[in-house]
Design a protein around this nucleic acid. Structure first.
Lengths: 98, 98
DNA sequence: CCAAAACATTTCAATATTGGAATATAAATA
DNA sequence: TATTTATATTCCAATATTGAAATGTTTTGG
């Protein structure tokens, strides 16, 4: 049956949507769309605490949505899941009209 | 500052994503993309209980994502928020490739 | 090696979500 | 009108999420 495929896809999609369902995480991911960002840079852009940003990044990392790489004493984060960018682009069109 | 607009948009978008972050709700909304559906029809398509489907519909209604109309003893539900369809279409492209 | 900078991690209380079970309501039919 | 059908609503215990606070870790500069 096709229902199982649809169900599996729905579970996967729902997981991604859950990752996007928090304004802080959403803004972090959006900030990564143009390219890599340092944790400190993300703190500034969000106006959020170090612990908050780092915590959300940890979660996003554990879900495979971002990956990081050390650069001196900083960590550079970037998007890692190819499904994120298309969804964010559409969200941008829908929620941030010209 | 533009940060406030971005923040407001992020909050709105995150709310929609939260509605989509449950496989059951997601499948209900997907089932409504082609057109109106009865509660019973949704129960069949999802293979879920009456109480479950009706409960999720109640929530989606309270968020303004769907609206319903009585038709005899049935209720016909349909999508009500113009932002839902574009997001689901993109999700379909991303998660249900040809 | 030591201190500071930049992140990571743990902990926790408050709050929210989940889905099942039971019960209630509205409309049609006999 | 009594019953059945279709849907709505309430209730609840288990689980998950949230964001702040405190503390731990890693790397570099002196």
């Amino acid at each position: 049956m096709i229902a199982e495929k649809m169900d599996a896809a729905a579970v996967e999609a729902a997981e991604l949507f859950k990752a996007l369902s928090n304004p802080g995480r959403l803004r972090i991911l959006c900030a990564l769309v143009p390219g890599e960002q340092t944790v400190g840079a993300l703190e500034e852009q969000l106006g959020a605490s170090q612990s908050y940003v780092s915590g959300q990044l940890l979660r996003l990392r554990s879900e495979g949505l971002v990956i990081c790489e050390r650069d001196g004493r900083s960590m550079r984060y970037r998007l890692a899941d190819p499904r994120v960018r298309p969804m964010l682009e559409r969200a941008y069109e829908v929620f941030c009209p010209l």
